[in-house]
Design a protein around this nucleic acid. Structure first.
Length: 572
RNA sequence: CGGAGCGUAGCUCAGCUUGGCUAGAGCGCUGCGUUCGGGACGCAGAGGUCGGAGGUUCAAAUCCUCUCGCUCCGACCA
């Protein structure tokens, strides 16, 4: 491809609306342009990389025994009512009403469609396991699209779904897919880690996320040197040591006018936050419940929902709280709070002589002792891990960092098959709900994560496997000798199967070198009069400072060899 | 959805506080010339509903109201 004929609009300055590195570089290198918030056009160069990522995924999915199919983007709203996810997804679901007044959903994912498909076409355990995937544009009306292509309203996703008679069989496929994911991300040249994850509205039991650690990520990773790794929603920290044997004091009421926050209380009572018990009033699937958390800890709603056995929890509004506690917001406490179930965090259990709200406006209780002053009917880990916490497995200090989620695998169980009636007959002729797994990869995120973690001041550095072109010919000047050499190199490299971008523009050398670095092609061959005077051209990898001088025919050999060996290295 | 900020040439921005000549700069683009190994230079040009609507005024990019879009923080979320 000759650059002069290609549509590669590079720009010198960072776009004003870009914040993260990958976003800036993708625009500057002419990979993409924004149409609207969370919607991007992939230009030819960017699309080449995206297609290469797609190809790698296809190969690995096929090798793992999955079969590719293609489902519709538009889906009947009725399907989503049946699965119960119309509500669960809420406003994130893009939908419209068609001319007949039917609600149509733009697919944010395809569990409903695939489960219906399989329900209608699979009826025997003999047809299992079945593993199906597609690569398709997904739609989500995100509250806040951001970070360039990392969170968009429209994105490319590989989604796979597997169907099984037994949990053991699911686990076999789950492991195969897990391994395939590792190969995919390895081949894309990414440094990633795998963490235990919460499954969110997809639902299900076990789940792992594939994360690329980088500051630009919006997920928080919690890791320990012992190998423990989880995302923040899932992470468990060790329960703090039981407090030294402080002898229990008597309950005492204290006037604390207007002190409704932990911060105000610590000042007023002159005790540290870890001596306070926060009493949070929430609604679990609409029913009130209270959660007790140590003053310096944060509630993890997902864990609480799990512990309470509900699908969804939200903070109760002020009116509800006042009605239930008999006090203004900020003065709730567990003592005498009999109207609603109380779930106590593990860290609260061992506290002694704590302070809590008195369920009386402008009053707090001191000397509160769990177990003595209120019942510990339900104790669970319901807090977020936080910096300074210890690992629950080895006691080491937990490390917090940011990451980009590029893939996610779930053991779904029977959530969708039961809702949508996907059954098969087992060997005894008995009806069984299908057990499902599902597996997703964000292709655009792979691209962005590669740039995010692999760029330098000059621009992008593509791994050979997903580079839009493998080698760039930088032709300096337009003299006959330079031109014929470049032409010959282009033909010879192409004949050897190399993907060549030929910068034949009449721009000055500096412009070409800077553009070549910016778009990050792994190998560069410079054809200029200087080296040609000695019959040479220059070969330089993107990551090296100094070029190597070679005769053109040798440069072709060397280039082809480097490409070969790098592609092979990625083909684990 | 709560908070903050921004919208002027293809891009990055100045001008707005204190209303007033023909609305500017750099980059990019077109033509000509000189250059040519890490983002050259000269000359000549093209390119603008100042996001949109309404209002105040003799006069609005500038002041007021409404509205749309975009970005960031929060909340939410594969």
């Amino acid at each position: 491809m000759k650059w002069s004929k290609a549509f590669i609009p590079t720009v010198k300055e960072d776009p004003s609306d870009a914040e993260v590195l990958s976003h800036k570089l993708m625009v500057r290198a002419g990979l993409m342009r924004k149409l609207a918030a969370g919607a991007y056009t992939y230009l030819p160069l960017g699309y080449r990389t995206l297609r290469k990522i797609e190809q790698i995924i296809r190969q690995e999915m096929d090798a793992a025994g999955a079969q590719e199919l293609h489902m519709p983007v538009i889906q009947p709203g009725e399907l989503w009512e049946r699965s119960g996810r119309l509500k669960a997804y809420g406003p994130v679901l893009m939908n419209f009403t068609d001319r007949h007044g039917r609600r149509v959903v733009l697919g944010p994912t395809h569990e409903e469609v695939i489960t219906t498909l399989v329900a209608n076409n699979i009826s025997s355990y003999k047809q299992l396991p079945l593993n199906l995937y597609q690569i398709q544009t997904k739609f989500r009306d995100e509250y806040r699209p951001r970070f360039g292509v990392l969170r968009t309203r429209e994105f490319l996703m590989k989604d796979a779904y597997s169907f099984h008679l037994t949990l053991d069989d699911l686990k076999i496929t789950y492991q195969k897919m897990y391994d395939a994911y590792c190969r995919i991300f390895d081949r894309c040249g990414l440094d990633y880690i795998v963490v235990e994850a919460e499954s969110g509205p997809i639902g299900g039991e076990s789940s792992h996320e594939f994360m690329v650690p980088t500051e630009a990520g919006e997920d928080t990773l919690v890791r320990c040197s012992c190998g423990y790794a989880a995302n923040l929603e899932r992470a468990t920290a060790a329960t703090p040591q039981k407090e030294t044997k402080e002898s229990p004091k008597d309950l005492r009421e204290m006037h604390t006018p207007g002190a409704t926050t932990i911060e105000e209380l610590t000042k007023l009572l002159k005790v540290p936050a870890e001596k306070l018990i926060k009493t949070l009033v929430l609604l679990g699937d609409g029913k009130p419940l209270a959660a007790l958390i140590r003053g310096d800890h944060e509630l993890n709603e997902a864990k609480l929902a799990h512990a309470a056995g509900v699908a969804n929890v939200e903070m109760a509004d002020a009116q509800t709280i006042e009605k239930l506690t008999g006090a203004a917001v900020g003065f709730a406490g567990p003592v005498g709070l009999s109207k609603l179930p109380i779930i106590t965090d593990k860290a609260v259990q061992g506290m002694a002589n704590a302070a809590t709200g008195a369920n009386k406006t402008d009053y707090h209780l001191l000397g509160v002792n769990p177990g003595r002053d209120f019942a510990l009917s339900s104790v669970a880990d319901i807090r977020l891990a936080q910096p300074g916490d210890r690992c629950a497995k080895c006691g080491g200090e937990l490390q917090f960092s940011k990451g980009i989620e590029i893939g996610h695998v779930f053991q779904l169980g029977t959530k969708y098959s039961q809702a949508l009636g996907a059954d098969v007959l087992d060997e005894k002729g008995k009806t069984q709900p299908l057990i499902m797994g599902c597996y997703g990869i964000g292709l655009n995120r792979i691209m962005a994560a590669t740039i995010e973690t692999g760029a330098d001041e000059q621009g992008i550095i593509w791994p050979m496997n997903i580079a839009p072109f493998q080698v760039i010919l930088v032709q300096l000047g337009q003299s006959d000798q330079v031109l014929t050499t470049a032409q010959k190199l282009y033909e010879d490299l192409t004949a050897r199967g190399c993907e060549v971008l030929w910068d034949d523009r009449s721009a000055r050398p500096g412009v070409k070198f800077n553009d070549a670095d910016l778009i990050g092609i792994p190998l560069r061959i410079t054809i200029g009069e200087k080296a040609l005077a000695n019959g040479n051209v220059e070969l330089k990898p993107r990551t090296e400072k100094q070029p190597q001088l070679l005769e053109p025919s040798r440069a072709v050999e060397a280039t082809a060899k480097i490409i070969q060996s790098e592609l092979k290295a990625f083909n684990i």
